[in-house]
Design a protein around this nucleic acid. Structure first.
Lengths: 208, 208
DNA sequence: AAGCTTCTGTGATAAATGTTACTGTAGGTT
DNA sequence: AACCTACAGTAACATTTATCACAGAAGCTT
């Protein structure tokens, strides 16, 4: 057990790992689980040790706009920020690949910042990375058109899963880009004609 | 002097204020000054004591997309995040109303986190507020159309300046929303017909 | 006043995106 | 096989946003 945390969070000091093992609770969730909803109060900081989570921003009309992925070795920045003041979540987190997460009670967050240098650095690094990721999201929707955003979406998906197949329907992709299924179908068809992808049912193969 | 910092940052402890006065450098900048450019290395954490700053995300094509305002009592979250690792800035900061800022050398950032509870809380609060602000920006461009975004833009401007007049040309507004001047003119005209604004040269009066 | 520049308004048109409607197909169920 | 459902393709059309072209008004300079 200790070995596993150490290998996933290599920069954590041994004292910090001991504190995590003592105070944290490891929990498993199946793909599809909604870990956190917009408006919910946050009671824990979440460290991912296995699996994948997608973070969405929800629109008033029920849209689910994909912001970024969380993977092993990462933490939910929102859960850290909100935890510090026990605030409401402004995002929705959905498990996309069975996860194990370490739940850290909110009191520990502040306490460890003072006690463990490696925790402090991890938190700061998490903030920085998530902030950067959100800024990239802003870039995409502010400066790019749908075809570029779709390409970026597919690339990010394959980076996250480490494979070149996207096993999603056009409908699901459309939802995460906040557009319509028809638009996604059209743009994918054009990409296929340009030789960038091969389209199968429920699957898109990335060729380049 | 001490009084002034204390009144603008009322939650700072006296010890922290003493440390700021000792290590920080107060600098003034005129409206129009670019305080920070995308890609520049950051050497200081910036606290605003007077005036107003706008934070932009720059597009590759030279677009300047407005993210949010910084006002007295606030700090640039990016400068904190990047300072911690002496990273490059991902944003551009422009003075829009003559400012005084307190420049805090990057070594102090980490040091004070451990030594001053009130600094720690200020930093966390700054992260949280800026993150929320950026999420709201994402909402706007992901879920809303240009007319709603324009209304939001005007409201935010009047909130920031505390007045109901926007002294900007349509061209300048268009640039900050990453659209064209004609679109802004047309949408403003419709707003005028709906009785929401009164249009003058280089000025928009908000009526509601 | 004459001349210049900047700002604003607006029509015409183009391009991108969203919507509606319908078709066919793959795969599963009975 | 017959049926059902989810998925994908596509045409036609509506809407939104971007671009081009031009004209008039406001303010400044000479």
């Amino acid at each position: 057990m200790q070995h596993s945390i150490k290998s996933i969070f290599p920069n954590f000091s041994n004292e910090l790992i001991a504190a995590i093992e003592k105070n944290g609770a490891l929990q498993d969730f199946k793909a599809g689980t909604i870990l956190m909803r917009t408006g919910q109060y946050i009671k824990n900081t979440v460290l991912i040790t296995k699996g994948k989570i997608k973070i969405y921003r929800e629109g008033e009309d029920g849209g689910e706009f994909l912001m970024y992925y969380l993977q092993p070795g990462q933490a939910c920045a929102i859960s850290m920020i909100c935890t510090a003041k026990s605030e409401k979540s402004q995002i929705m987190a959905k498990v996309v690949e069975d996860v194990s997460v370490m739940m850290i009670p909110l009191q520990m967050m502040d306490k460890w910042m003072m006690e463990h240098r490696s925790w402090y650095e991890f938190v700061i690094e998490t903030y920085r990375n998530r902030f950067e990721e959100v800024l990239e999201v802003v870039d995409n929707i502010a400066f790019r058109s749908m075809d570029e955003r779709l390409e970026f979406y597919l690339k990010r998906h394959s980076d996250a899963c480490g494979c070149s197949e996207v096993n999603l329907s056009h409908q699901e992709i459309a939802a995460e880009l906040n557009t319509s299924r028809e638009v996604v179908s059209r743009l994918l068809k054009k990409m296929e004609q340009r030789g960038l992808v091969k389209l199968n049912r429920n699957q898109i193969e990335l060729l380049k």
